[in-house]
């Protein structure tokens, strides 16, 4: 059975003038256990909206989300999220930030065990030296690592990431991608990630789901990335299959779902 079922989900927002804007139009997608899915699409097409619906932060106008068979009615410990803007609480140290999440997921466990889990999670992303530091004392890449550690620390079934590396430079981004792949492979976590970086999507995904341009975005096309793992970043750049995926995705984004101003 699929880990995550997105079933006929539509979402409309009511804007200030009271007009309804249909952002997502009947999206359906089944995501298998330990599958890595990337959502790709133009800015404003509704990727974050879809991810927030899966997280339980937004209620869809119609349709439903099922996670491991149970209908999602709000956020839950089996779904963790890595936010685009790292979203660390600046008044807590790194380990306190992770601890805050761990404490809720393993309620009732002794304090020493919770602390231990929080520290282990930071070690997992190679941040043992930053345990007692405050977010303002560490770099952007390290902050995002803490965000990833916090999400994995609660041992979620499904991990949701909303453009987690968007604000990072290319080198930092690659090392964080490697880190993510390593942890996902050992924990067998199911992943849904939003990205606007085609190479990132190809490097990480088992499947790439492209949304058509909004409003009323639908699933435009799905690619199954068959490139075997472990994937080598360098070899990937000249891999025939990968070049084909990249070309098709680019064609989809710029021809099938062009920017509104390009279409006219």
């Amino acid at each position: 059975m699929a880990d995550l079922n997105i079933n006929d989900v539509s979402m409309s927002f009511v804007d200030r003038s009271g007009k309804a804007l249909l952002a997502l139009d009947r999206i359906s997608l089944a995501i298998e256990h330990s599958e890595f899915v990337c959502l790709i699409g133009h800015s404003g097409c509704g990727k974050s909206t879809l991810l927030n619906i899966v997280a339980g932060l937004l209620r869809p106008t119609s349709g439903a989300i099922r996670c491991a068979g149970a209908v999602v009615t709000g956020p839950g410990p089996e779904r963790a999220m890595v936010f685009q803007s790292h979203a660390l609480l600046p008044w807590m140290t790194c380990v306190e930030n992770v601890h805050l999440a761990v404490k809720q997921a393993f309620r009732g466990a002794p304090r020493s065990e919770l602390m231990d889990r929080a520290e282990q999670a930071l070690k997992l992303v190679h941040l043992e030296h930053a345990i007692g530091k405050y977010p303002f004392e560490i770099s952007g890449g390290m902050k995002q690592r803490v965000g990833i550690a916090r999400a994995f620390a609660v041992q979620p079934k499904v991990l949701l990431l909303d453009e987690p590396f968007g604000a990072l430079d290319a080198l930092t981004r690659s090392s964080l991608q490697d880190e993510l792949v390593r942890i996902v492979e050992t924990t067998k976590t199911t992943v849904v990630m939003v990205t606007h970086d085609i190479d990132e999507a190809i490097f990480l995904s088992d499947r790439i789901v492209a949304l058509s341009n909004g409003p009323a975005a639908r699933i435009g096309r799905i690619w199954k990335v068959e490139t075997p793992r472990p994937r080598d970043r360098l070899k990937l750049t000249s891999d025939f299959e990968v070049i084909k995926y990249r070309k098709e995705i680019l064609e989809f984004l710029y021809k099938k779902a062009p920017f509104p101003q390009l279409a006219s």
């Binding site: 932060l57 956020p75 999220m81």
Partner: peptide
């Protein structure tokens, strides 16, 4: 909003949310 979302996603209870966030 991002800090409120942290509380919601990780299920921080109301009282702890008020005092620590």
């Amino acid at each position: 909003a991002e800090w409120l979302n942290v509380s919601r996603v990780f299920g921080v209870p109301r009282l702890e949310h008020v005092t620590r966030v």
